[in-house]
Amino acid sequence: MGDFRYVENGRMGRVAYARIAPNEDLVIGIEKLCLAKGFNNAFVRGALGSLVDASLEASDGGVIEVKGPAVEIVSLAGEVRSDANGTPSASLSGVVADPEGNVYGGPFVSGLNPICVTFEVTLEEWLPEPAEDTGSSRARTGGLHL
């Protein structure tokens, strides 16, 4: 059983703005941006753009497909975390609008959200403080692993 930090102290660091080009994947594109800029952890501070089609994770594990083009990204929140090897993983959730303006929401599925014309994103680096190695800072997790 590993430790999970329910409270992580830290501060904001660098800020990056990027334009990601057509046919790149939304989720993987943000992960590549973190690699390019040397960010281990980051929060999405602003994002808008369009997708060819959108794929959102459904509650039953399936995929909600929203047909475009273009599917507009009208809301996006999320973060990027890197593992011990430095491999970034973006968790992104948002609302999209189809070509009639109808809206759908959920987590974006990695690899299945190709950008249509452009995607503008601002990331703010998150710099966590090292975990205190004391018993009081550890929380029982019920099997959660960081």
Binding site: G13, R14, A16, Y17, A21, G29, L33, A36, E124
Partner: peptide, 14 residues
């Protein structure tokens, strides 16, 4: 096709 797929700028702080 533009070979630059991610055009990014960054600053030390916002």
């Amino acid at each position: 096709f533009n070979p630059v797929r991610i055009k990014a700028g960054s600053a030390t702080y916002g």
